[in-house]
Design a protein around this nucleic acid. Structure first.
Lengths: 245, 245
DNA sequence: CCCCGATTTCCGCTGAACGGAAGTCTCGCC
DNA sequence: GGCGAGACTTCCGTTCAGCGGAAATCGGGG
């Protein structure tokens, strides 16, 4: 194992459930001897990749320097920045939870999320990953994913709620419909009491148009005004597409 | 220079003006021999700290893994997440550009920013740093900063616009007023055509109350409804304070 | 005061990282 | 299509930076 790999192993020890770690935990989770972890931690600390939770605290946390760097990642700097004003406009118009997501392998990666106090509580956080088959944005991304991704995902439809679609044939038909009609929807397939609609964001590259992201929103029920919501999303998606770098 | 430091030097080569770099640029900016840079980028690549802009492209960019990690930083995961719904509520009520910022050394670090299409264009981006003496949130943070920070900043008041305050005495008086009245304002001191108000976000820690962040908004003019804007900010700041972890 | 677990420092051995140099790829230009 | 310049990748012998066991230090609870 190379030095860099060790340093990266230390950083990997942090996750959503472990945002603060002591030296000992850090060493154990990274699989490194204490003395080694201590030395490496020192270097990361002096560079700002790690910080102490507060001065003198025994807890290490991810540092601002890493946060800074992360903001330069293309997933964030291009798409998210362009989309941001559109998301806010949608939010102001609907007060629903608004999601911006991309596909990362066989999962949905949430790139941005807006929600105020009136919104339905949802599980997604910025940076979290969820299955492709049971969320609005997931279905949109899946419908436009390469064949091998679709094959893998259709072959492993985990049930999340009683309404999650677990029959490949049924989901497959929905994906077809999503492509035809230009939007996807879910009804309590990810969490009870939450319904969603979502539309694709396309980027006209040379030669072909590809779907680079999905834009969706979560509401308590779709009964009332699905057409209005879909229309709002499509206007925004269109605007985002035109502003993409 | 240690190995870790070299790897980190490579990552530091990226900044807002250089979001994509070729191997050669990367090596030059990090001050490393080409062969060394090549080996290290290989490791960073395989771990996901770096990615190629698109498969086969000669450009390196910051990877998703770093973005993921950055989201675990306390600046983001604690403060920002709690504040987010409040910011959206303010935005929905005012349609102004809303800022959430902390002090990072002798600068303001913008942690979150909302702006829609109706908002005044502003220079700040999420993750960007600006001087403490000429922005609304900056003045709030400066007013509650340790004496040595105040001394350094008051000793180096760079002029940004014709309205920037560059006399230490005048700024000092404003800081005093900010502490007394509970809010700060600027009038075209950072950019022409932009005025701002801002309030502190306090955290009641054991023993003393400390100012951990500032909440502000930017509007074309303060004439009309400053009291209303300040009130809206104060309600939100109060709410955020109470929800802080 | 003493104990125990966590953290920090020390230091001699060693193998992983270093980087010059040589080989390969990829353009653009003639 | 051949040639040259620049960018990228691979190789490999040397060496020194990192390794980690062990010992010292810290700190809080009994």
């Amino acid at each position: 194992m190379s030095v860099t790999a060790r340093a990266l192993a230390l950083l990997s020890a942090f996750d959503e459930r472990h945002r603060r770690l002591t030296l000992t935990e850090l060493a154990r989770r990274a699989g490194l001897p204490l003395a080694t972890a201590h030395r490496l931690t020192g270097e990361l600390l002096s560079w700002g990749a790690l910080e102490r939770l507060s001065p003198g605290s025994p807890y290490y946390v991810i540092g601002r320097r890493i946060w800074d760097l992360g903001l330069l990642a293309p997933v964030q700097s291009g798409l998210r920045q362009v989309a941001s004003p559109f998301l806010h406009d949608i939010y102001a118009a609907t007060l629903a939870t608004v999601h911006l997501a991309v596909r990362d392998g066989d999962e949905v990666l949430y790139v941005d999320r807006l929600s105020g106090h009136q919104s339905v509580p949802v599980v997604s956080e910025i940076g979290s990953r969820l299955p492709l088959h049971c969320t609005g944005v997931g279905k949109v991304l899946l419908a436009h994913a390469p064949a091998d991704v679709q094959r893998r995902v259709l072959g492993d439809l985990r049930r999340i709620t009683p309404y999650t679609i677990t029959q490949p044939g049924r989901l497959s038909a929905q994906l077809e419909r999503t492509r035809r009609e230009g939007y996807a929807q879910t009804v309590e397939e990810m969490s009870l009491g939450g319904c969603s609609v979502a539309v694709p964001i396309r980027r006209p590259t040379t030669g072909k148009v590809e779907v680079v992201a999905a834009l969706g929103l979560v509401v308590p029920t779709l009964k009332r005004d699905k057409p209005r919501l879909v229309a709002a999303l499509q206007v925004a998606a269109e605007g985002i597409s035109r502003s993409l770098p």
